[in-house]
Design a protein around this nucleic acid. Structure first.
Lengths: 217, 217
DNA sequence: CAGTGTGAATATCTTCACAGCA
DNA sequence: TGCTGTGAAGATATTCACACTG
């Protein structure tokens, strides 16, 4: 196993590594065996030195004068990110978005296996979606402890996100991905990530407006 | 209208402004009329000066010695972001995720109205979801031109994302939010944002691993 | 000699600290 | 007095430029 240099790794680097993995997979499917940082950079929309620097946090994966072996590099990055294993995940909140995620193939393909789903709506409890039976939220803490689940996904309405988080924390979860548009509080040792695609729509709307303003100057 | 100072506004600022709007709405619902940067910062999980600096890009919204009027501030931010209007949106790709977004109330509530949905699967064409009839993708460019749509959402499988983008570009769209896990290329004048929640799962997985490594030291 | 790995230079972002105003 | 608005300082992140190597 490559040893990670002991430096703090920028958040932004992690986000980019995920993109690199994605693009490397596409290249692998296209039968490309070797790739230069320049070409990879081009298809990921970043600067070549950026890629080299990002990779340097974890080790030396390239061959000077040649480039990177696509398969090797992908595996190395995945290992560096802790993705050379599967992660058990539970979901809280089975609304439209929750259902979509339960049925989404890509999660499993990337090593994130949803092992249970919870909701507090009695009409939903007992329903089966993509092979998973919706259970009552109150069973959550015990279940996650029993199954050794480490990651929780919150897809409740915003006002119930904190309660969902509390259940997850009680259940000894180590990380939370919150899809609800509300901030949650969690102890230091629990990692929290927010997903809110409304932000991206905001951002697009803003940038369109800016472009137009610039066009007038 | 407040005049924006002519400086380039950091991407990160835009992302945070969206969070501020979210939290301000929660506060408004709780009947809070005035808020200090310190309290708002606390509930958004950022530094108070950060908030003041972010707002300063757009104008002076606060009252010294008092704080910010919640309603006023929210409106001012929305105006600054170009959200004091509605945006017509079209969707390409009606899979699990597309359906979830079509049914999602929040998009409309935030001023993003999905006015049409397209797919190339003949089995899906004609189907009606949340009051919107799925149309054949080939009709896309003409429809967006006719309806004056400015934003396109891509929720196709990755291998079809570029083609979807091409249709949208041909249709004169100004911004794209790509939910498919693949990079797309678009002309300079088209704004592109990527949404990929797998990245956030990667990030959580990585941070959990890191925490554990740190724990061992 | 093409392309990596990396220190040094630059650019960007965040936080501090405090002047200035209600 | 209390909290904003902001220049200056500090911290991070990105890009450059080139020594080095397969």
């Amino acid at each position: 196993m490559h040893l990670q240099k002991y430096e703090k790794i920028p958040r932004a680097t992690i986000a980019r590594l995920a993109v690199y993995v994605q693009e490397l997979e596409v290249m692998e499917q296209q039968g490309i065996k070797v790739i230069s940082s320049e070409k990879l950079a081009w298809s990921c929309g970043v600067n070549p030195s950026q890629i080299r620097k990002d990779l340097a946090y974890f080790g030396e994966f390239g061959v000077r004068g040649v480039g990177y072996y696509v398969y090797e590099l992908r595996e190395a990055i995945k290992q560096s990110l802790g993705l050379d294993r599967t992660w058990n995940v539970v979901m809280v909140g089975v609304g439209n978005l929750g259902r979509a995620l339960l049925r989404h193939q890509l999660l499993r393909k990337r090593g994130f296996v949803i092992v249970a789903a919870f909701d507090c709506d009695p009409f939903k409890i007992g329903e089966e979606i993509a092979g998973i039976e919706v259970q009552c939220s109150s069973k959550l803490p015990q279940s996650t402890i029993d199954m050794g689940v480490e990651i929780g996904i919150i897809t409740t309405p915003p006002e119930r996100a904190q309660r969902a988080a509390n259940y997850l924390i009680e259940g000894g979860i180590k990380g939370i991905v919150n899809f609800a548009p509300s901030r949650i509080t969690a102890p230091e040792n629990v990692v929290v990530e927010y997903v809110d695609f409304i932000h991206n729509l905001f951002s697009v709307a803003f940038n369109i407006t800016q472009h137009q303003i610039k066009g007038l100057l």
